[in-house]
Structure formats: C-alpha cells, structure tokens
C-alpha cells in the first residue's frame, strides 16, 4: 500500500467520527434504559454519517440521517414510550447464547479474525470494476451517478424493494391491527 499523506483535518474528522461511532455503540449495549440506548444509537448514526461525508458519500450521509435518525430511531422511541417498557418490565427473549463471556470471546475472536484476514489481504483485493461502468467523479455531487446506477445495474434490486416495502406495510398492518371479531361473533353484540 502506498504511504498516504494524512492531513490533520482529515484525521480529526476521522477521530471524531470514530469516537462517536464506538462510544455510541458501546452506549447502546451498556445502558439499561432503552431510551438512552436509542440516544446512543443516534450518536453512532451521526458518526457514521460523518464518516460517509468524509468518504464523499454526502447523499448517503443525508439519507442515513433521514432514514435512520429521522424514521427508524423515532419509531423505536415511539414504541418504547407507547409500551412504557422503559419503566416497566422489558420485553425479553432468551439470548442466543446464555453465557455473556462466551459470546464476548466468540465475537472478539470472530472480529479479530475478520480484521486479521482483511489485513492479511492488504484490506482490499478487488479492482475497479467494469460491470457497472459508473464511477464517482471528483467531489461533485454523486447523486446523479447514484440515480443512474439505481436505474441500470441495480434496476431489478430497486424494483424488488417495492415488493419488500409492500410486504412490510401489509405485515405491519396485520401485526398492529387489533383483533376483531369476524362475522360470526359480530352478531353477538
């Protein structure tokens, strides 16, 4: 790998983003109160957004904030408050592995392994790819390229998300709707 001259602002931005991400993520898994977890999650999301901007993906940074912070975490908060789970007993499930330590060791080994493998292959082995033929250009807005890719190379995936959203909406409605009596019971006023 070529030695890269790092500029101080870049490093500062990176460090800030990384701190936000890591601290936020740690917050998510260490706070007891789900609302605090959600707040930590937002911090992570902002960190990721900053990292996106640093990597010339401004559009995604905005979408990240709009979709994740603006919709997803709000939904979380809404449900937390709606159910009042922060003050009462939680909705719990058995974790996959009972032992905390076991899970910890397992995850650490896995992640260390992944990092090791990535480092061994010098982080990247692919080549600028010919299939899409669309490359990001300079520091211009990449929204156009993004849009073009969505409607060419990723057209099918894009259309498939329509099915995904339809099923999600129907599913949410089915799940959230209150039980109603059907015709038989409705005669029993």
């Amino acid at each position: 790998m070529i030695a890269v001259a790092l500029t101080i602002p870049d490093v500062v931005v990176y460090v800030v983003a990384a701190l936000m991400i890591v601290v936020g993520a740690l917050g998510v898994i260490s706070f007891r109160n789900p609302v605090h977890c959600a707040l930590s999650l937002i911090m992570t999301l902002f960190g990721v957004a900053i990292a996106f901007i640093e990597q010339e993906a401004q559009f995604l940074a905005a979408v990240e904030i709009i979709v994740y912070a603006g919709a997803i975490v709000i939904l979380f908060l809404f449900v937390i408050m709606f159910l009042g789970v922060d003050r009462r007993d939680e909705v719990r499930v058995d974790p996959l592995v009972g032992q905390r330590a076991f899970a910890g060791v397992g995850v650490v080994i896995t992640i260390a392994g992944i990092i090791f493998l990535m480092a061994r292959s010098h982080w990247i082995t692919g080549v600028p790819h010919v299939a899409t033929g669309v490359a990001t250009k300079g520091n211009n807005s990449n929204v156009q390229e993004l849009g073009r890719a969505v409607f060419t190379t990723y057209l099918f995936a894009f259309e498939a998300t329509a099915a995904l959203l339809v099923i999600a909406v129907v599913g949410a409605v089915v799940l959230a709707r209150r039980e109603r009596a059907s015709t038989l019971e409705s005669s029993d006023a």
Partner: peptide, 13 residues
C-alpha cells in the same frame, strides 16, 4: 459491538 449486544442483551428492543 452490535453482534455482542445482540447475543448478550435480553431486551428485545
């Protein structure tokens, strides 16, 4: 961190 949390936390949310 995410995976660890998923494996160890007991709250669904």
């Amino acid at each position: 961190i995410g995976a660890f949390g998923l494996l160890t936390k007991r709250s669904a949310l």
